[in-house]
Design a protein around this nucleic acid. Sequence first.
DNA 1: TCATAATTACGATACTGTATCGTATCTATA
DNA 2: TATAGATACGATACAGTATCGTAATTATGA
Lengths: 200, 200
Amino acid sequence: MRKIAPTPTPGRPRDPETGQRILDAALRLLAAQGYSRMSLDAIAVDARVSKPTMYRRWSSKADLATAALRTLQLAEPRPDSGSTPADLIATLENFSRSLLRPNGMSLIGTVLAEEAHTPELLRLFRERIVTPRRAMLRAILDRAAERGELRAGADLDAAVQMLTGAFYARYLAQSKIEPGFARQLVEIVWNGLRKVKARR
Amino acid sequence: MRKIAPTPTPGRPRDPETGQRILDAALRLLAAQGYSRMSLDAIAVDARVSKPTMYRRWSSKADLATAALRTLQLAEPRPDSGSTPADLIATLENFSRSLLRPNGMSLIGTVLAEEAHTPELLRLFRERIVTPRRAMLRAILDRAAERGELRAGADLDAAVQMLTGAFYARYLAQSKIEPGFARQLVEIVWNGLRKVKARR
DNA sequence: TCATAATTACGATACTGTATCGTATCTATA
DNA sequence: TATAGATACGATACAGTATCGTAATTATGA
């Protein structure tokens, strides 16, 4: 039985590697220079393509930037050791490392700065990074709740926001995050959340 | 004794109102558009001056932007009611309000995004806003420690970072901050920090 | 004392050189 | 043949500068 090939489009086919190179370059320069300062000329040079090559795939600068952000993925392990504090600490340490990568924080800065002008950037960053990370931390706390480890009345979402937000606040204060910071955070939050047995 | 006046300079004196109008306009546009997109033409129009007028006072765009940030001041009350949770909540609610002002978060975004290119913006924002706010919250916790309200071993700076950082994380997640958020945060952190009496 | 010269500030306008987005036109490729 | 890819280009924006006429002040000389 003859294999039926898809109907070929006449003309030269697009090179998918070229497209990927452009997206990689765009994401890199978006983080390094911010949206407004990032230029299509610079992306073209970095990806070793011409500008019309990019315009054949994306209709505008904003279109390309949003496509680049769409390639973002939270690729961090999900600890599930049975110990809530240990899982929180491990997850937060992964987060800390990604924030301290070159331009880790400036990507966040640029999506916030562009909220009024190019809102889809912040929307995509939320969808691809912020929401999945919250879900990871929330899952750890939900498991703790199922195990009966948590006292009643605490807002788990507020706890998650504090755990992640503390890194932003620390960076904003000092542009660095010391080792052991995650442990300090979890120590306080865990004390604030867990069901109390008789302490001695 | 005759008062010795400074030697007057011949020529038309500079109008301090003009200078102030320029700084106000610069700060407004910096927050609204970000550093890179903010233009000197737009500031001149907003402040109803000419560009040479601005260049007579500041040598460059970066010079003007840093001068504008230097005018920032944390002008929030410092609660000292004797109740640590109440003081924390009141302080954080002021913080929340300022973050939710138009462009409150985008100013933070732009100083972060510009860290590599115009680092003095982040440095000044830290000096004028971030550090004073941390000090306010830290003072509340230090008073609690003096009153003997805190358990041993908790890192108060980590607690402060969580309390402020949670607002950044919440904004990043949703571009809004609900009423009562501060209360939820303080409930957890206070439980995590305070000396335990017999709970019932 | 008064009028004028000298000086600086200011608005309005124009200019310079550079950067950037998006498009036109050409050659190369499948 | 039709599309991909490259170079060149047009239009516009922008930071910074130059110029002109007028405004506002001090200094100076009659």
